[in-house]
Simulated scan of single mutants.
Amino acid sequence: MLDTTKALEAGWRKAREYVDRNVSALGKKLSALGDRIADLEARQPERGPRGEDGAPGRDGKDADLNDVLRCVHEQVTSQVATAIKGLPVPKDGRDGRDGQTIQGPPGRDGDDGLGFDDMNIEFDGERTITLAFVRGDRFKSKSVTFPIVLDRGVHKPNQLYEPGDGVTCKGSYWIAKKPTTTKPGDDTSAWRLAVRRGRDGKDAHNA
């Protein structure tokens, strides 16, 4: 018979190790995103013909990558825990019925329920983790999609972006809130401004 407590402990340990490993990989992606944002903020303005000074633009809000990473880690841990709680608890199979005759042998034990020993974890490389339980011809699976920000580079017109996709457009960094093919800045319901482009410096005065 399947030891339910040991199976749950083994499953939780496997899921926890998997989450920690992927959160570490996510941290590296967020670090690379931070480097990209820093490059945008450090960009030097090109010198053009001297004109009148315009009104100073508003300062952009700095993104705190530590807060972003902590938020993503909490969401990943919470959703994995919720997914595991929703899985069916393995149960021992029912004992088989006795034979019809007095001398008949006892019936065989019923099949054990699917447990964590039958579990495989699959990751699509971006946002979705699938917990698959397989034993012989028996199969059951559950997928969990996390709201992770993925950097998609410079915005491309007419390309479909999914929620959580981040793009650079006109020096600012935007994150999609829903599936969209619109341009950042044109549709506030589809895009959220994450990092505003820094204002250009004033032209140097001739000596």
Rank of each mutant, 00 (worst) to 15 (best):
H73V: 06
R97Q: 11
C169S: 09
D124F: 12
G171Y: 06
Y18M: 11
P179M: 03
Q103N: 07
K14S: 13
R70Q: 08
L33C: 03
D137E: 15
L30N: 06
V144T: 15
F116M: 08
T168R: 01
G57L: 11
Y18E: 14
V167S: 07
C71Q: 05
R199W: 03
D67L: 00
L40E: 09
D186P: 00
A25N: 10
R70F: 03
D112W: 04
E52C: 01
L2W: 08
T182I: 04
A190H: 01
D20M: 11
K177D: 00
Y18V: 05
R21W: 08
P45C: 06
D109C: 06
S143Q: 08
P90Q: 03
G198I: 02
D53C: 07
G54S: 08
E122M: 11
W191Q: 05
K140D: 14
E17T: 08
E126C: 08
R50K: 09
R43K: 13
N22K: 15
G153N: 09
S24Y: 10
C169Y: 14
F146C: 06
S172A: 15
F139S: 14
E162T: 07
T128K: 14
K202N: 03
D39T: 12
S24W: 09
A42N: 15
D64I: 00
A15N: 07
G125H: 10
D186H: 05
G60P: 08
V68G: 04
T168E: 12
G96N: 02
L8E: 13
R199I: 02
C71V: 02
G57W: 02
A38N: 13
R138V: 11
V19E: 14
L114S: 00
E17C: 09
D62V: 06
V23C: 07
